[in-house]
Design a protein around this nucleic acid. Structure first.
Lengths: 214, 214
DNA sequence: GTCTATAAACAGATAGAC
DNA sequence: GTCTATCTGTTTATAGAC
């Protein structure tokens, strides 16, 4: 059974997971050899099998670590009952701004998000862990906030789809990072650029939820 | 020099490109062996090297074919001068609805989009071809339409970013297809579901552009 | 252009010493 | 827990017959 670890790993395990996170995210799982992983982690090749049972076991461990970190970035879900529409909108904006700045500027965000997206796109067995541990609860929280802000029902199809569209807006700035920087004439996405992206998304949220309320 | 082919390939080359499109998109480039490619294409293994110079040459050929098909789906850019804001909005909605339905329901869309996104996320040499041949021109057209519909300047940062956010909304419904179907309680994304997604995006476009105009 | 046969390198995994 | 040395299968690429 797959689980999300409570505590960060240590020693050789930590080094291997770190190497897996970087290399899997950058080059993809299949393009990364066990020898590369061991070299990058500074440990012996045989330790992959010893600690994780094999390369695929390391993948599972990396997924668990990804879920753990995403949860930390997104913050624990908070009850949203009793919020006014304006307060719900503000909390939505705060959450998405934090995510936008994180995926735009945090050095470790690139491989982490790339790895998570690749796992999700494949729809393989790792999807479950990422979904149940992170996306499921977070989506529910966002849906409730969106429902309050827009005056609609949290369980309605419109609200659930709207939350997906909102997530897509944020993620594309990581996935299409090459395209974005090129088209915008930026050299990279730093704090300034991530801030402007966050501003746009926050404003879009306001327009969408207020428009829905009328 | 990489080029977008004018005409579809034939014979063994076509069969190999078709196999590459399906397998690269589904399993990823590195996870696909040349033997699988040859078997699926129904041709001899050695023909990959003969026709494309190796596995990586086949990847290039597949990218060219992807760009060719995406161009065909999105349609040739049309001049947008003289359009009223309402007409520009309607054309935006038509284009995005077409793309949403295509990536939601076309059987070949999954591997094709997955492959293109994987290439873009990697930011490797294939990015150039996809960007210059497809995304660049299309983004310019969408920006002009958005500018007219929202009353802003097509070269402004706000408009260019808004177009990226819009593209992200559409793409996530393919990338996160597993998550979407699960969360929505759908068994798959068929014409009905794709239509409802398109409706949402069209409505979002209206709210965003009209909101900006005020 | 297409095939068979094979080369040369690389993959992931493991036995056994320490 | 960590290491060396090695096994076994697979990978891509190619030489050469047809």
């Amino acid at each position: 059974m797959l689980e999300i670890p409570d505590k960060p790993p240590e020693g050789a395990q930590k080094a291997l997971i770190e190497a897996g996170l970087a290399l899997f995210g950058q080059k993809g799982f299949d393009a990364t050899s066990t020898r590369e992983l061991a070299e990058r982690a500074g440990v012996n090749l045989a330790l992959i099998t010893y600690h994780f049972g094999g390369k695929d076991g390391l993948r599972r461990a990396v997924v668990g670590e990804v879920a753990r970190r995403l949860l930390a970035v997104a913050g624990a879900p908070q009850p949203s009952e009793g919020l006014t529409p304006a307060a719900a909108l503000q909390r939505l904006q705060t959450i998405l701004r934090g995510v936008a700045v994180f995926i735009g500027t945090a050095p470790e965000a690139g491989p982490l998000v790339n790895f998570a997206l690749a796992e999700l796109a494949r729809g393989g067995p790792m999807t479950d862990l990422i979904y149940e541990g992170f996306i499921g609860p977070k989506h529910a929280e966002l849906s409730q906030l969106w429902a309050i802000a827009s005056g609609k029902n949290a369980d309605s199809e419109a609200v659930k789809l709207a939350v997906f569209a909102m997530i897509g807006q944020v993620l594309y700035f990581r996935l299409g990072r090459e395209i974005v920087t090129r088209k915008m004439g930026w050299t990279s996405i730093g704090p300034d650029e991530a801030g402007r992206i966050a501003d746009l998304i926050a404003e879009n949220l306001r327009l969408l939820t207020e428009g829905e309320r009328e």
